[in-house]
Each structure stands twice: as C-alpha cells, then as structure tokens.
Design a binder for these strands. Structure first.
Lengths: 106, 106
DNA sequence: AGAAGATACATCGCCTGTCAAGGTATCTCG
DNA sequence: CGAGATACCTTGACAGGCGATGTATCTTCT
C-alpha cells in the first residue's frame, strides 16, 4: 500500500458502495477486488474495512446476510440499498467537486 | 464551506505550502486567499489552520517571524523552506496518484 | 463616545476514521 | 501435522479537523 491513508480517508465508504453496485459481496472479496483494481497499490486494512461496513449498515446504506456456504469459512454478504445508491451518487458528485477544488489549491 | 472535511483531510498542509511557494504570508491572509481561489466554496477553520502551521513549523517545512506592522493587529508571517518545497512536490505527486486511484475505485 | 464588525492570533477538548495487534474458525496443500 | 490462505471481528491508541472560547487592535457607523 503505497498511498497515504489520509488521502483516501473519506472515500472508504464510497469505494465499498461502488463495489456493491453490481453484485452482492463480502468483506474479504471486496478487499481483494480493490487490490486487483489498483494493481496492488492499495488495500483496506481489515479494521478499516469492517468498521466501514458497520457504519454503512447502521445508517441504512447496505444490508447484510450470512452466505450458505456448504464448505469453507462462513461469509457475511452485503447488498447495497436504495439509500446506499443515492449516497453513492452524492458522494461521487462531491468527489468531482473536491477534486477540482484541490487541483485549484495545490 | 460545501465540502466534507474528510475529503480535504491530508491536503491541508499541502494547500498551505502551495500558498507559500511564491511569497511569505500569514494565517489570516492564507485563509482569505483560499476562499478567493475557491469562490467561497472552501475555507479552513482557524483551529485547523493554526494547527497545520504548528505542525509544518515543527517538522521544518516552514519558518515563522513576526511582521513589523506599525498599525493594525500583529501578524505572524510564514516562509517555506527548502524541505517544505520538497515535501510540497512529493505531496503533489502523491495527490496525482491518489486521484487516479480513487477514480479507478469509485 | 460607544457599539459593531473586521482583522489577527491562539488553545482546549471532543469527535471520528484509521490501524496495529490480537483473537476465532475453516479449508487446502505438502 | 503444520503452514498458509480464506474469512470474520474487536479493542485501544493515535492523529487531524473543528466548535467554542479567549485575546487584542483597528475601522466605521451612529
């Protein structure tokens, strides 16, 4: 992980929501997907990841359920809610603004 | 201030360094300049601003001196050091990377 | 003269997100 | 059987942002 976490801070939840847009997923897979998409340049720490899932579920952006694996470790799947999609869109807009703002300032 | 502070977190010091590249400045002016550049969309809170100045001075990125105003409130001026310029360049590079990374992920 | 508002600096204590460290349990492969 | 991957979770410390509050000076309006 070569990138300062303070630069990503505030995007963690949006990144997770983004990953859930197309399909339900579980924690471990979410993180693996992030690693793949970034070519190993970034990964979420587990404590950060599960903390974000907890917050997202608490404010209604995602719902969770246990997978019915016959074998292997149990998995808690998450699915994005309507609210979650709205929040995602809003966050994405905010990111576009923030990007522009920061580019103006640095 | 229409932008979430977690999206700016980690950029505060870089923004300040950027403002000091061309000329020495003081806290109040720095913040006014940020407000102008962003058309009032963003400003640093004073506690954030002075906290950042303190950190930057402690790790040698800036130096400070009192202005010799004959009139008006006293001003503490800051000037960027060689180290500060190097840190600025590095932070700017990191921002380019982070931007790309986040765009990939959200 | 007095009040209000801008200029200018500074600190304290709270809140929140990140993360190192630790823990549990299952499966696979040598 | 041991090592390593898969998969989940929590606790405590830390750091940055910020509301609140305080100081002092200058200008402007009444």
């Amino acid at each position: 992980m070569s990138i300062a976490s303070d630069l990503i801070r505030g995007h963690t939840e949006t990144i997770i929501l983004s990953h859930l847009l197309d399909r339900d997923s579980y924690g471990y897979q979410t993180n693996k997907s992030i690693q793949e998409k970034t070519g190993g340049r970034y990964e979420l720490k587990e404590a950060t990841l599960y903390g974000a899932f907890r917050r997202l579920e608490q404010n209604g952006c995602i719902k969770s359920y246990w997978g019915d694996e016959e074998t292997g470790a149990r998995r808690r799947y998450y699915s994005i809610t309507g609210l979650g999609r709205a929040v995602y869109e809003e966050n994405k807009r905010e990111w576009q603004d923030a990007k522009e703002l920061i580019d103006t300032l640095i």
